[in-house]
Amino acid sequence: MSAKAVVVRNLTRRYGYRVALKDISLDFSENGIQGLFGANGAGKTTLMRIISTLLRPHSGTISVMGFDPQEEPEEVKKYLGLVGDKTLLYDELSGIENLRFYSKLYGLHRDFFETQVEELSQRFAIKTWLEEPVKNLSTGLKKRLDIVRSLIHNPMLLLLDEPFSGLDKDTTEDFWDYLNEHRNTRTTIVTTHNLALGANLCDEFVTLRKGVVINQGPISQFDQTL
């Protein structure tokens, strides 16, 4: 049996009276690309927020890379890389200033940081834009820079919440290739309502509907009609 990156048991989360996640139990295996599928309002983003320590569940337990996000959030955060629909970049800073700021928060060694910037900026074709203030960049370039930001500390658990929205075809393919290359050394959890894309990319999947797990398993068992 493969090790688990995320283990969720009987987890419930409400917003007021509305139940976003209802007594769900699921696992995400370590390494590989795991899909979290479902329509809008299924509870995907809520679960991603709980995994990334941004939200607390009302009941149930969760373990991320062996740690409890509520009890040991800083331990969990060391492993996390996060890409959402909105970038986490500061418009008034240049690309390299943004990356340098995050590298300080992650306590990266200068040599490691420079190697990572060199490698990732070349890989995602933003090297020539690094000195430019983020507010001057196009949406696609901002997204590329945000992907580099999320990878700068070489996270072992990458959480991608609708990562392909706003990305052009080339960037989507570049990112896809990158995720494929690191399939064996990194756990990536992707939420998407683009089921065709998800089915091609992922090794395993979980499908949520109205806050309930309706299906999970290897991608070969994935049924897009559910």
């Binding site: 941004l54 959402g84 995050y102």
Partner: peptide, 10 residues
């Protein structure tokens, strides 16, 4: 939305 960057940093 940059607060999430601070909130998820270790």
């Amino acid at each position: 939305g940059t607060l999430r960057g601070l909130a998820t940093a270790p």
